[in-house]
Design a protein around this nucleic acid. Sequence first.
DNA 1: GTCCGGCATTGATCCAAATCAAGGCGCGGC
DNA 2: GCCGCGCCTTGATTTGGATCAATGCCGGAC
Lengths: 261, 261
Amino acid sequence: MTFVTDDAAMTGRLKSEKKYLLDEMTRGDMAPEELPLFRGLPASRRAELLRHAMVHSVSPGTVLFEQGDVPNFQLVVLAGSAQLFGRSAEGREVLIEAARAPDLIIPAAVLTDAPYLMQARVPEPSRFLLIHAAAFRAAVDADPLLAHAVIGSLAHQFRRMVRQIKNLKLRTATQRVGCYLLALSKRQGTPDRAVLPFEKTLIASELGITRESFSRALSSLGQSGIRVDGQTIAILDARRLAAACTPDPLIDGADAGDFLI
Amino acid sequence: MTFVTDDAAMTGRLKSEKKYLLDEMTRGDMAPEELPLFRGLPASRRAELLRHAMVHSVSPGTVLFEQGDVPNFQLVVLAGSAQLFGRSAEGREVLIEAARAPDLIIPAAVLTDAPYLMQARVPEPSRFLLIHAAAFRAAVDADPLLAHAVIGSLAHQFRRMVRQIKNLKLRTATQRVGCYLLALSKRQGTPDRAVLPFEKTLIASELGITRESFSRALSSLGQSGIRVDGQTIAILDARRLAAACTPDPLIDGADAGDFLI
DNA sequence: GTCCGGCATTGATCCAAATCAAGGCGCGGC
DNA sequence: GCCGCGCCTTGATTTGGATCAATGCCGGAC
């Protein structure tokens, strides 16, 4: 089992660099045994699952799977992260979401044995647990605790998607940018600034706008008390920023920041 | 336990009329015992669940719950349908999805005991099974078959949301309209026409555009072989329509039409 | 150090879609 | 029958954001 690595997938379009993600590396480097996914499982069952599993370390640029592929494995992020992209028939590509340790990567596709709707790429050196899809489905069917964990993961992921839809349908580009910054600063625990987790081009595509519009939105939010310095956005006046973009906990939400499962 | 019915919720904004939905009524009027959700459950467990449940018939305009509410019940559609709306801080409101028999209504919120991200309204006379939330969670934890059914429902709903995001981020308004028509005609089994399931204003909001833009998109698609006659859209040349809007099974998909669980 | 390639910004222009504003149609009430 | 209210369409205008194009900036290769 090998992944497509680097090459064509990395030329051109959207890719992500290490530098933005180094700080993330401090978080989450899990041994498979201590995954929350397995919490409370009888040792025998865990061992059984891990017998059908392996750990892969992959380098930046690796494509874990393509959209349209039928899942062979349930992937679980042990360290690093994966980015999920949607691509149109014309070849345009947008970031839909990012998975970090200890997330499951799209259990919805694996459990229904349906083709992936997104491509997964790895932006930084990362490690994944690969559990055979059929074995995973069987284990989930057999073990209530595992099923419970999976349900939690699916539910959180569903809610993230609903939030994103509300964000896209109900807000303007500038509002999305402002709320994104506020959510980021809150998640990072630094009320006076936010550090962008990856390239602006990529964030723009996550927010459903072009990089140029993102850049302009940032500069227009200068009027609302922010200063841009590279990847760091200083938030001088959170009150004013909030007034300009009307954040809403049901969109930018509490649990949008805490991680799946 | 009573729902807010009619009154303020129906004045103004988005509402839905019976006429569009009468044909849907022929489909799906289920006895609680024969829900796919309960398929294979030991009779004792099903009885136990139904002891904590009730059936409610509700009239059009009823609000089942508001966004922000904490779930009291897992609702299951027995007959008719429910529409799920997202509302912004400013009060703008959009349709995010529709649930029909025998769908579960947002199990993601019920199972995580988290506030609803959407409001649910009933556009036509409908019947729902209401299962006490705590009892439902307990039963799902205890019963692998029930858990399996819930996982299927969550997974399908997640995938629908991903499709919608791709639709919004990757396509223009006219493409979305064209693909919507093609998907509709396929789902309805009539390759030469599509019948809109509800008011155009509502469909427009589901597609993330204004009613005016929807109207214009329809008329501009006249050039691609469609004719609009009220709620019925004749598709004279599916080939040409497809060429104009580049449908994609990973967005308009196969299972976007078949219903959850 | 220089060169180069990817990312970001900025400006100019274009375009799609929103908004604003009239009518028109169909249906239910009376 | 007539009226009135929603819903829809159509037109005029505005605007938010995309696209096109040029330049700047930084980091890495050498």
